[in-house]
Write a protein that binds this DNA or RNA. Structure first.
Lengths: 81, 81
DNA sequence: TTAATCCGATCCTATTTTGGGATAATCCCG
DNA sequence: CGGGATTATCCCAAAATAGGATCGGATTAA
């Protein structure tokens, strides 16, 4: 297992979250507010400056109105391609 | 969103991974080897000393021969109790 | 009993990452 | 352009992490 943060894998995960946020029409600041975090928190994980753990991922997916399981499924499906 | 690491949420996630490892009859050292990490890596995340990000979670589930989606589903279902 | 393993938890500390307010840079629309 | 909205970056003290070494308990062998 390589370091996650700078991996292509991780970049895909982030891209998925960013795309989901865009589709939901939610701004970083608004998402951050839902999460009770500063906007820089969102900017950092979206920019690959900070790792997201599993629990955080779930909280973010929910805040975006997305189904965490579907997101993860899409992520897994996108492997190897 | 509270800090993940010491949360009850996180404890449940870890418990799930530990139980899965036990059922699979795999030792920390063996799992660590599959992950190309030292045994202390496994001991730490199982002991709640270290956060697991999504990519790591997937790698661990696979190394344990478990379906990551099923694991996550069980985790999510166990919420709110 | 003593020794040898095995297993997992803990130690140590240099290195890396993170928190979050402030500020800078971009974007976008009129 | 103007300038508000949105996102990215800065700063750096504090917190988290890496991973080899070591510890202690449990089990087994000699």
């Amino acid at each position: 297992m390589e370091k996650s943060l700078k991996s292509a894998e991780y970049a895909r995960l982030i891209a998925l979250l960013v795309a989901t946020r865009h589709k939901a029409g939610i701004r970083q600041h608004a998402l951050a507010k839902k999460l009770r975090k500063p906007q820089s928190f969102v900017a950092k994980y979206e920019g690959g400056e900070r790792r997201l753990d599993v629990v955080e991922f779930l909280a973010i997916a929910e805040a975006l109105g997305a189904d965490p399981l579907k997101l993860l499924r899409r992520f897994i499906r996108g492997k190897g391609q």
